[in-house]
């Protein structure tokens, strides 16, 4: 049954980061199904395919080859079918410009990749169990960046 688990997608070109990400969910044991894509092109090809299962939460790295996170975000928000997907920006940097731009484009939360595995697990569990409806209604530039 597709609704039994939370469908999660990560698009990140860094192999280590994908490994940390899947490991973290493995350890969290949260009834999630995690799929990963190596870049924006792969991600968009999947989302645009007919048999795609749209994720509950999409983790989007910004700095990717071929098609970066901002471009993906643009395409997703422009597409009626996908525009409701909760999008978590998942990036090494937390520069003012990136935060500003992704917020304006309609991302739901901005996560700066933590530097300890323990923190990573904590952040991911919080994000996945987040009430998006509630979060999105009260969303502003101050709480957009997730505080660790």
């Amino acid at each position: 049954m597709p609704n039994d688990y939370i469908n999660i997608i990560l698009a990140d070109d860094d192999e280590d980061d994908r490994l940390f990400f899947t490991d973290a969910f493995d350890e969290l044991k949260m009834n999630t199904k995690v799929s990963t894509f190596n870049d924006g092109v792969e991600l968009m090809a999947y989302l645009n395919s007919d048999d795609a299962i749209l994720p509950n939460v999409l983790f989007l790295d910004l700095n990717m080859p071929l098609k970066n996170g901002i471009e993906c975000l643009n395409e997703i928000k422009a597409n009626n079918k996908m525009s409701d997907i909760a999008i978590a920006i998942y990036s090494t940097s937390a520069s003012e410009e990136d935060i500003e731009e992704t917020f304006v484009l309609g991302a739901n939360i901005y996560i700066k990749k933590p530097s300890s595995f323990k923190q990573l697990k904590k952040v991911l569990s919080e994000v996945v169990s987040m009430n998006w409806q509630y979060h999105t209604n009260g969303l502003n530039k101050d709480n957009f960046l997730m505080r660790l």
Binding site: D16, S95, S116, F117
Partner: peptide, 20 residues
């Protein structure tokens, strides 16, 4: 500073994995 962060973060994460 920006690009240095990525490998460092990974080093730190691996250390935390190793510790654990």
């Amino acid at each position: 500073s920006h690009d240095l962060q990525e490998p460092l973060r990974k080093i730190q994460t691996f250390i935390s994995r190793l510790e654990e």
